[in-house]
Design a protein around this nucleic acid. Structure first.
Length: 543
RNA sequence: GGCCAGUUGGUGAAGUGGUUAACACACAUGCCUUUCACGCAUGCAUUCACGAGUCCAAAUCUCGUACUGGUCACCA
């Protein structure tokens, strides 16, 4: 029995490789791809990889492809694919080809979901069987385990290779007999390398190095008929025309496998860039960001916090190329994509995730937003995470924009908010509905009668609607003077004994009276937006 | 354990043979000021994991040691 006859037994009505290859003509565009598994929520590292792929595709006027790697049916999660597509959309990483949902997709090099590509993989595997580079393996898990132990005891390399690859030597007749008996099997690739062989590797990030060549007869088709990652990668990225495979660093050491696979199929190899994973400092231990251990690994967590997607992208950009930050500070008005991202600038060691840095970037980003745009973001955010507040700011639209606009849209805006989630903590007291159950943070002046006196005096004697900032500052001085307090910092410092205190003690009384808090943004704006009536009402709350 | 990569301040890092070892975050002090935030000013590694070597010259090149990370599945 020949290899070809065996191939026909294994794959009864599978297309010939030639015919498949014709369906995917070569194309000369620069193509990158993001190929996640639908195993749950998007990991920050995935977003990082996707972003880099996207950016490089755009900058080279190429194509960005989304491909779903769902060959592991056990780890597959419902909604997994939808989540991936949604996250990509949320971050504006629009792909040129890929699935739109479970049924529809765009692009003519699909299907873009691996579980729908089984017949394609089979054509390639059939070819490998035909040329004697692939064979069925009937070894059980138990046998494989005992082999592993045996090899450990003998202190030789563990794995299915060389003389340990038992099923390599099965005769065609034995194979056919086993199959007829219904014994489950996988298909393994037959490696031709020897243990001492090495292979030169080129990589966009790691540069050049030498690795041991692959010697393992790796599984390329699992019992369930689906391919393993290694095989699917080679087939898909070749067919889809990927020019540069940008993927996680952890694939680097399996590159020799992929290279041997490409060679066995007579396919030209691709260019690779293996990017190191995002790390985190866990009490002195540096490790990969882990979805199980770190909330920071989940992209959804940033959404929960209310870190604007654009801010997260800026942060990721600084992780990708550290010279991005300097460029960005000088080009605040430009699109991130205008920065020339470079593979060469990616560090070989994984970037450490730094929450403070993220917050700082986010804070600066938010401070530069127009009040109207911030309002929109806040609306989107509260709609999901704080529906009560959402209703409130919806019914007080203009007022809310006015509040958000305090010390904003000026050259050096306030930088209070590092996320959309903290905004309420800063502005809640501006809403009459929320101004109750108060704990006043009185400072120097604590005597409630004196406080009432100061407040009433100010409102009845000095404050009026439409007062200018200048007049307002002046009114505070007069008020301070009325109560025996210094009218300026300088005055007070020069002669502290002459006064009961400083003007800041008086303004603090007004501030705490109106907000209950000692630290807030500009008091003049607070009064202006609250209005005289509400200010009067708040006197009645003083106890 | 084998193989591959990395190691620069409190943190993220720039730096590829000659620099005062950038920049940013954090921190500290001062100024400004109606509080806070902002802003401004100043301070914060005589030294680049350690040891040896090459060179007039090393954070940068070579070797060794230590440590850290990644990888060795019918998971991707």
């Amino acid at each position: 029995m020949s290899n070809k006859e065996l191939a026909e037994v294994l794959f009864t009505d599978t297309l010939d490789l030639e015919d498949v290859l014709k369906k995917y003509p070569r194309r000369d565009k620069f193509i990158t791809r993001y190929a996640p598994s639908p195993t749950g929520f998007t990991h920050l590292g995935n977003l990082y990889t996707a972003f880099l792929n996207y950016v490089l595709a755009k900058q080279n006027k190429g194509l960005f492809i989304l491909r779903i790697e769902d060959t592991d049916q056990k780890r597959k999660v419902k909604e997994g694919i939808e989540n991936i597509i949604k996250d990509l959309n949320d971050f504006g990483l629009t792909f040129d080809e890929g699935p739109l949902n479970l049924e529809k997709e765009k692009g003519s090099y699909g299907p873009y979901i691996q579980s729908k590509r089984q017949s394609i993989y089979d054509s390639f595997i059939k070819y490998l069987v035909t040329i004697g580079r692939a064979y069925p393996c009937f070894c059980t898990d138990e046998y494989l385990e005992s082999l592993h132990k045996e090899q450990e005891n003998k202190k030789v390399m563990t794995g299915y290779y060389g003389s340990y690859a038992k099923c390599r030597d099965l005769t065609k007749e034995e194979i056919v007999k086993n199959i007829k008996l219904g014994i489950p099997y996988v298909i393994r690739f037959k490696s031709l390398n020897k243990e001492s062989d090495t292979i030169k590797i080129k990589d966009g990030v790691i540069k050049e190095t030498t690795l041991p060549a692959n010697i393992f007869d790796i599984v390329i088709r699992k019992k369930d008929g689906l391919p393993t990652y290694h095989f699917a990668h080679v087939v898909d990225d070749y067919l889809m025309g990927t020019s540069l495979v940008i993927r996680d660093h952890n694939w680097f050491t399996s590159l020799p496998i992929h290279l041997e696979l490409f060679a066995s199929l007579n396919l030209t190899t691709l260019k690779y860039a293996h990017i190191p994973p995002v790390m985190i400092n866990d009490n002195g231990v540096i490790r990969k960001l882990s979805k199980r251990k770190d909330v920071w690994a989940k992209v959804s967590f940033y959404k929960e916090l209310g870190i604007p997607t654009e801010a997260l992208k800026i942060y990721l950009a600084t992780l990708i190329n550290t010279n991005f930050e300097g460029w960005y500070q000088n080009n605040l008005d430009k699109d991130i994509l205008e920065f020339p991202f470079s593979l060469n600038k990616i560090s070989k060691s994984g970037p450490l995730f730094d929450k403070d840095k993220l917050y700082n970037i986010s804070k600066n980003y938010i401070s530069r937003l127009k009040a109207k745009d911030l309002y929109k973001l806040l609306l989107d955010y509260t709609k999901i995470y704080d529906i009560e507040f959402y209703k409130l700011i919806t019914s007080y639209k203009d007022k809310t924009i006015a509040i958000l606009n305090i010390e904003r849209e000026i050259p050096k805006p306030r930088k209070d908010y590092y996320s959309l989630g903290v905004i309420k903590d800063y502005i809640w007291f501006m809403y009459d509905e929320l101004f109750n159950n108060l704990t006043y943070e009185w400072q120097q002046i604590k005597d409630i009668n004196l406080i009432k006196d100061i407040v009433t005096t100010y409102i009845t004697k000095y404050y009026y609607e439409g007062i200018s900032k200048e007049e307002w500052l002046n009114s505070l001085k007069l008020l301070a003077n009325d109560f025996g307090y210094a009218t300026s910092n300088k005055e007070y410092k020069e002669n502290p004994n002459k006064y009961k205190g400083n003007i800041s003690d008086i303004t603090t009384v007004l501030r705490v009276f109106l907000t209950s808090k000692k630290d807030t943004f500009d008091l003049y704006e607070i009064m202006r937006i609250l209005g005289l009536e509400e200010m009067k009402r708040r006197i009645t709350l003083l106890k």
